[in-house]
Structure formats: C-alpha cells, structure tokens
Amino acid sequence: MESNQAKNSLLSSHDNIQRTQYPYVTGTSVVALKYKDGILMASDMGGSYGSTLRYKSVERLKPIGKHSLLGASGELSDFQEILRYLDELILYDNMWDDGNSLGPKEVHNYLTRVMYNRRNKFDPLWNTLVLGGVKKGQKYLGMVSMIGVNFEDDHVATGFGNHLARPILRDEWREDLTFEEGVKLLEKCMRVLLYRDRSAVNKLQIAKITEEGVTISQPYSLKTFWGFSAFQNPTVGAEGSW
C-alpha cells in the first residue's frame, strides 16, 4: 500500500497533472487587415521571457497549407505545438489527393475547436491566433483567443494591438486598400505599438496572402523618432500620476 502511494507520486498519476498556469516566452501583438487582393499581416520578432526581451528573431507569421496564413501572439512554445497540429492536419488533407483542400475558414474553425477544447481541460494553449486567407476569391480574416473566443472581421489585432492599433484601423481602413496603402497602414500601427508597448521590438515582418499564395517579407526595422517632448518628460501635464 505504502509503496503504491510512493509509486503514484513519483510517476505523477492522473490526479496531479501540472497545467499551463502562465506563459513563459511570449510574443506581443499581431495586426492584420483585409486589402484589395487578400490579407496583410504584421508582427514583430521579439520573444519576451517575462519582461526580459530574450529573443529577437522569432518568426510569428507562418503559412498553413495553400490558402491560409497564421499569426500568433502569446506563449511561443504553445504556438510551435499548434504548428505541429496544423502540419499534420494539412499533411493528411493533402494525402487525400482528391482536389479538395482545407481553406482558411476550415482551419480557423479547427483552431477554435482546439483552443476551446484545451481551455475546457483547464490546460489552455496560451495564445491569441490570427488566421487570414483567400480561397476561391473569398477573403477570410478571423481571430481565436486562448479561451476559444472567436470572430471574423475586416481588420484584427491581438493583445496591445487591440487597444492601440484597432482605433487607427477603424479610422483608416477601407475595403479597397491597395497593397502599398495596406502596408503603410500596418506600419503606422506597428510604429505606435513600438513606441507604447514595452515588449515590442523594432524588427518586424509583414506577410501577404492572395489567391497566388503566401509571401513573408524579410525582417526589417521602422524609422523612429524618439525626440518628442512627451517621450522626454512623460509626466509633464499629468501631475499626480506617475
């Protein structure tokens, strides 16, 4: 009897599993929008270990199959696990070799099921995911959160982007944005995020997906100007705050 109990605690049986209670290495905002020919998505390449900017070259935008593009913020190892699920999903889909393929809507719904299922096990995948794609001339852009909340929209942003980028997008987004205008708008959002989100880094990628497929840009930096007086003395005019 005693030895049995000892065995149980050593092998950690079903009644004491450790679940993800907080994330370790995280990526910050992803911003995405629909434009004339498809979807544009942007994210920086930082990986934060707590508040330490630990990694500087993490790719957080990935193509999924032929018609979809996935961007992730949150726990980076959980993102890698999600990518494994999706690789398998797309592989088995291709193995049918029958002319049918999973489009962005299907992948988005699959991710919703995975996220919600894990949250119900009290073991969530600590991410907010953005899924965009084009199939048969149909543009698709949606989001899933770590607890399974999901929706579609013309433009989306995760994390800090929700507070800082969405208002800009609401003001300036149009249905018929060209590629150049779209990139400009995303860069505007990313610049604001870079200034105000302490875990953002100045190294980002922009990806586009159209009927022709996915292209992800090389990493690059935004021009910045830190000489604004508000940056130099942020408490001026805000007496009584920090």
């Binding site: 049918w96 029958d98 049918n100 999973l102 489009g103 809507k105 299907e106 719904n109 699959y110 099921r113």
Partner: peptide, 15 residues
C-alpha cells in the same frame, strides 16, 4: 461539420 464548419467532401465520405 463540427470541426471545420464546412460540408464533408463526398469522395472522402465514400472512401
């Protein structure tokens, strides 16, 4: 339909 919110391709069901 639950997993993908889309109809199952006929050929796959038949296989």
């Amino acid at each position: 339909g639950f997993t993908y919110e889309s109809p199952l391709p006929v050929g796959r069901l038949v296989v």
